[in-house]
Design a protein around this nucleic acid. Structure first.
Length: 215
DNA sequence: CTAAGGATTTCT
DNA sequence: GAAATCCTTAGC
């Protein structure tokens, strides 16, 4: 299997391997692991800050290039819009916990609970696309879209409700995306959400080949 | 363009 | 219970 090199230009290097455009080792990724407190901020801020970070599961990893913020009960596009239920309960809990659910009976969707304590009742960030970084085929298409990225990284509801501070499942602050490279716009697939549909809560690394839909 | 697919939520 | 709905994807 061929592995692609890191396709995202860093704003500032954090790892020695980065300057050589090399594939990071698992030890390097673990050393850059984000603490749970990192996710305890405004949900949209976290969604934006996740761009350029690495989502790591086992020996596989991808660079996050597309995210969406879903807020609390007032957000008519959010699963939290019906209040706390069995499925969305983790959205109302501690930040830095995974929220995984099945969509359209087919696709596993991977979210990370992220919310400032003072902000709102609930919140989570949907990871919608990753670029291959480690242990994945050298093909942007494998991580393009929320259902495809979970399949590529081996994520499913079996990983629901986990704190992202373990050795197997975590986010590495591998690098941050250049501010100028970040685009934002309306979230995908939420046309039913009335006034909340056009809110610019989707964040992408502009033009990146792994971004789904319009880049 | 549409069908698949299964869980979730709301409705009768 | 029944029915509609859904943060999508692959395949005509």
């Amino acid at each position: 299997m061929r592995i692609r090199s890191n396709p995202v230009r860093p704003e500032r290097g954090r790892l020695a391997a980065e300057s050589k455009d090399a594939i990071p080792t698992l030890a390097e990724l673990r050393a850059a692991r984000l603490p749970l407190a990192w996710f305890a901020r405004d949900t949209a801020v976290v969604a934006r800050a996740l761009l350029g970070c690495a989502l790591v599961h086992g020996a596989r990893a991808g660079i996050i290039v597309e995210t969406e913020a879903y807020l609390g009960p007032t957000d008519l596009a959010s699963h939290a819009r019906f209040g706390r239920t069995a499925r969305n309960a983790v959205m109302f809990g501690a930040a830095g916990v995974s929220y995984v659910y099945l969509c359209y009976g087919v696709h596993e969707m991977f979210n990370i609970v992220a919310r400032a304590e003072a902000e709102a009742e609930a919140g989570a960030v949907l990871v919608r696309a990753v670029a291959p970084l480690r242990g994945l085929p050298d093909d942007a298409a494998v991580g393009r879209g929320p259902g495809k990225l979970t399949r590529a990284l081996g994520l499913s509801r079996g990983q629901h409700g986990r704190t992202l501070d373990g050795d197997q499942l975590f986010v590495a602050g591998w690098q941050s995306a250049r501010a100028a490279a970040i685009a934002r716009g309306p979230r995908i697939g939420v046309d039913y959400a009335g006034a909340w549909a056009p809110r610019p809560l989707r964040f992408t690394i502009a033009g990146h080949p792994a971004v789904s839909g319009r880049r």
